[in-house]
Amino acid sequence: MSALEASPGRRGSRRVTVVAAVAGAWLLAYLGNTPLWDLLVYRVAGLDADSRLGSGVHFFLADTVKIVLLLAGIIFVVTVARSFLSLERTRALLGGRREGVANVAAAGLGIATPFCSCSAVPAFIGFVAAGVPLGVTLSFLIASPLINEVAVVLLYGMFGFKIAALYVGSGLVIATVAGYVLGRICPPHWVEPFVYATTLRGVPVAPGQRLSWDDRIALGREEVGKILRKTWPYLLAGIGLGAVIHGWVPADFFARWAGAGNPFAPLVAVLLGVPLYSNAAGVLPLVEALHAKGVAMGTVLAFMMSVVALSLPELILLRRVLKPQLLATFTGVVATAILITGYLFNAIL
């Protein structure tokens, strides 16, 4: 074999080696992120893990790195994958006629990939940029933080099978229906234009355009840089707010104003839940405590859902990729669905 014939093979081997090394470094950084900040914040800096300051500082640093890693990894992979898809193929797979089924599938995928609300945003950006219909992507965005297997197991242990099953079923319905409705009433141009625009070395790239592997990798790298530059101030603001309110939940105030006998209890629960930021497993101890104080099950589940599906930090981060009309509509539709669920559960439980 001549040197000229071997050259492409050697370039391919080097490319695979570099990509594998970067992927390995990414995985190590992601897996080691929380232990690293445990060491630096609690052992080196000496902050108390049980204090508001210590847990807040740890939350901000660990979540910032985690979400940047997720954003970079997901955007890179989705951009490279998208470079293989033609516009016609994407439409055939995800067209409007199958949108209802796709909403259910997206909600199911969200359950299988249990991110917190801010961590789900990078996947949302990647899916929209890849040509997935907006409503279908929103079903994923709602379901991913709303339901996860840890929360389901804990709910089962605390309240039994019936409550756990109702929670999963209602979360799936909320994500599917809300995503479908939003897809029907919200036009795609309510998403910021940069999410849809893909360029390679400053030149627009059409879906399915013939590209070399070097071009595809460069495309993914450039797309990661572009989106990080566009979103980092919102990302830091959202996570910073989450760190400030992390661990702060007005349990006594909640029990007083959303307790049994108050017909507006689910509404109070949703209004209190939206500004907070936690995952489903993290808020469950409070759910158990509130229920023990006499707060109705529908009310505490509505509170839990609003905390994990509509956090204020998530909405700040989403503002960089969604225009105000879509952000407001998204919040209103999901909050209304959660509110209805709370009243329904109070009526039947």
Score class of each variant (00 low, 15 high):
Ala243Glu: 00
Gln209Trp: 08
Ala258Phe: 07
Pro188Arg: 13
Cys186Phe: 08
Arg221Thr: 14
Pro233Trp: 07
Asn262Asp: 12
Gly202Phe: 04
Ala243Gln: 05
Tyr234Glu: 10
Thr231Ser: 01
Leu284Cys: 06
Tyr196Ser: 13
Asp252Ser: 15
Ala258Gly: 07
Pro233Leu: 02
His189Ala: 11
Leu219Ala: 08
Val195Asp: 05
Trp213Cys: 13
Lys230His: 14
Val270Ser: 04
Val268Glu: 06
Cys186Tyr: 06
Thr199Lys: 15
Leu182Ile: 04
Trp213Arg: 08
Pro285Thr: 03
Ala178Phe: 10
His189Pro: 07
Pro204Gly: 14
Leu267Phe: 11
Val270Leu: 02
Ile245Leu: 11
Leu235Asp: 00
Val191Asn: 05
Val268Leu: 06
Pro263Asp: 10
Arg216Trp: 15
Leu284His: 05
Ala206Glu: 11
Ile239Phe: 02
Leu182His: 04
Val244Asn: 09
Ala265Asp: 00
Ala237Leu: 15
Gly247Thr: 03
Glu222Leu: 01
Ala281Gly: 13
Pro266Asn: 03
Tyr234Gln: 10
Gly220Glu: 10
Ala251Asn: 08
Lys230Arg: 12
Gly242Ile: 07
Gly240Tyr: 01
Glu222Thr: 04
Val205Lys: 01
Tyr180Lys: 04
Gly220Tyr: 15
Gly220Cys: 12
Ala255Ile: 00
Gly225Asp: 04
Ala281Asp: 03
Pro207Asn: 01
Pro250Cys: 12
Gly208Thr: 07
Pro187Trp: 01
Ala206Lys: 09
Gly225Ser: 10
Pro266Gln: 11
Ser212Cys: 14
Leu200Arg: 08
Gly183Asp: 04
Gly220Trp: 07
Ala255Lys: 00
Leu228Ser: 02
Ala206Phe: 13
Leu235Lys: 00
Phe254Asn: 03
Trp213Gln: 15
Arg216Phe: 06
Pro207Arg: 01
Val244Lys: 03
